[in-house]
């Protein structure tokens, strides 16, 4: 077991995430047509691209919420797409935050956050709550601890969702358009949380429409188009001097819409 792990890990010991030739179709619609991507430890990668370009699908594949049709995904040296991989175990180490928050409406904030640590990691309620309280405090949610999700603003709900993912101490955090469902005045409080996480060294893959934010925070930006990574590079280059015609077209549309 450990020998296998050692052999696998030699090839990519520093990569948090490695994606090779990933294909994914829904029925006849091929959404991902061979994605290749490497994310280093502590790196923040932003995925940009038009709606339907496959950003969300890619993130859901990385978290094994969607089975992949072809290709390999390797997380911290372990191939997670191999046959017989324990998906439940793999997901523990990969957090995902969704556009629509997806909090559990029948549980208070603290129960939302502690459910997985207690049931999946087998932590005691007391230990899990202590950790949850610490995280809630850190993200300005301490006074919302016992509230139910429908009492919270969208921004607060999304921050709780982030805390819920962080409570599993993931090595990799996937953020799927997490500000798209928020009122404009609530976007900043959520983005601030992500900035703090980036500063603390969290490895993140962020699908976003907030180009200003992507330029700020990303170490690298990947532009998805037609089911492949059409162009990637540091944000300064992608946003000021894109090489590909379709990247320029996309950014022009964004600029015309006043989003950059």
């Amino acid at each position: 077991m450990s020998q296998v792990a050692a052999v696998e890990s030699t090839s990519s010991v520093t990569d948090a995430l490695r994606i090779e030739g990933l294909h994914k179709s829904f029925g006849k619609l091929e959404v991902l047509k061979g994605i290749d991507m490497v994310v280093a430890q502590h790196e923040v990668v932003c995925l940009i691209g038009a709606s339907g370009s496959g950003k969300s699908t890619l993130l859901r594949c990385i978290n094994l919420l969607e089975p992949v049709d072809a290709g390999r995904i390797t997380v911290a040296g372990q191939e997670i797409t191999r046959r017989g991989a324990d998906a439940d175990r793999i997901r523990r180490g990969i957090g995902i935050v969704f556009q629509a928050f997806n909090l559990f409406p029948h549980m208070s904030v603290v129960r939302n956050v502690t459910l997985a640590p207690i049931k999946v990691l087998g932590r005691s309620r007391r230990a899990a709550e202590a950790e949850a309280d610490e995280l809630l405090e850190r993200f300005g949610l301490a006074d919302k601890r016992d509230d139910f999700p429908d009492r919270l603003s969208g921004g607060q709900q999304q921050r709780v969702a982030i805390v819920r993912a962080l409570a599993m101490r993931p090595d990799l955090l996937l953020l799927d358009e997490i500000t798209s469902a928020l009122d404009p005045e609530l976007v900043a409080e959520v983005l601030d949380v992500i900035r703090e996480l980036a500063a603390s060294g969290m490895t993140m893959v962020i699908a976003t429409h907030e180009m200003g934010f992507a330029r700020d925070i990303a170490d690298r930006v990947c532009f998805l188009d037609g089911g492949v990574v059409a162009e990637e590079g540091p944000p300064a280059r992608i946003f000021s001097d894109p090489q590909e015609a379709r990247t320029r077209q996309f950014l022009d549309r964004i600029i015309r819409a006043g989003r950059l």
Binding site: R89, R91, I94, G95, F98, N102, L115, A116, M168
Partner: peptide, 10 residues
């Protein structure tokens, strides 16, 4: 809801 639960490792 199930996706959120499964993503946490449940």
């Amino acid at each position: 809801q199930e996706a959120a639960a499964r993503s946490l490792g449940l």
